[in-house]
Each structure stands twice: as C-alpha cells, then as structure tokens.
Amino acid sequence: MKHKYLLGSFDDDEILLNATKKMRLAGYQMHEIFTPFPIHGLDEAMGLQDTRLHTAGFVIGATGTMFAVSLLTFVTSIDWDVNVGGKPFFVLPSFVPVTFELTVLFASIGMVVVMYLRNGFSVFKAKEVVDVRATDDRFIMAFCRKKYNTQAEAVEISNLLKKYGAVEIRETVLENEIAPNLFKVDEDLAHLEHGHH
C-alpha cells in the first residue's frame, strides 16, 4: 500500500509557525510536521490534542507509592517484625526514602515506556525518513493526499505553502502511513489570528 504526501519544506522555525497557522485558517489541516528541534507553540498552532503522558506518569508514579508503602508495611510489620529495642514496627518516617525512590522509579520508567510505545518506537523496525534534512535544518509540513485527493486541492495547497514561505514543495510516496495525529475537534481558530497563544 502506497501513501502519498505533499511536503512543504521551510528553512526557518518562525516562518513555519506562521505558515502553520495560516494554512489552518485557510482550511487545510496538515497531517504532520517534522522539525529538528521542539518549537514552542507548534502543537497548539497545528491543533494537536494535548499529550496525556504526564497523566500516565502520575498514575504509574502513584502505583509505585502504593506498592512501596504496602511492601514496607508487609515486611516490617507483618512478615518480618523484628523487635529493635521495643521500637514500633510500622514507622512511616523511615518508609519515606524508599517510598519516594520507588515513586520516582515507577513514574520515570512508566513514562518512558508509554512514550516509546505511543510513538511506535522500535529498535528493529526503522521508520521511513521523510526528509533527511528534517533532523538538520529543514522543517517539513506534510499534507495527506488521501485527505486532499483532488488535483485542485494539491495545487491550492502548493500555492499557499509557497505564499507562506516554503522553500521547496514536493510530493512523496511512502510505504507506510505516517501515524495519524489526534486533533482538537470543534476548535475555534480565532486564536490563530492574533499572535498570542
């Protein structure tokens, strides 16, 4: 199965950010943008849904906290209650260090695993590189030709891309689909008109 994309290539992050807003105001939703470094506000300009990764981190971290407290309680008060000079078995203050460390350990491993899974990262299966300069100094905006499948739309997108500063426009065919993003639904585009975000 072949997948066709229309690519607009930019050589500056500010021009790209502006073009992103303008393309969406013109009614064209880009499929994906490839950039060599994170651009502040780009996800919002694209209308990307917020990531829920931090929520995953919180849930997994809280699991770590509960695991640690249960383990320590079980070991020190139930299974192996060693009497040290008559001191209490259940001692929350001395549980703090291990509980804290396990919370952090769970949250970080969990977040990294979730991120790698959601991004579809794999050591064994390389992804198709859309443009080798996208990790160097080019910013690539991709439009899905399946969505905009008429010739008229392709011409219109190309013209707009050129108008908003793309330095190169071309079409590419990929073996694999670029995983589609979740975009905000029913978003009011008015905020794109004014610079603030």
Partner: peptide, 14 residues
C-alpha cells in the same frame, strides 16, 4: 528508535 521529529514526538518529548 525511529525518531523522526514529528510534532507529536516533540510534544511528548517536552
């Protein structure tokens, strides 16, 4: 790991 620098990857990265 197949990093491509997509907007979503950067969003999660941040």
């Amino acid at each position: 790991f197949g990093w491509r620098g997509t907007a979503k990857e950067w969003q999660r990265f941040e």
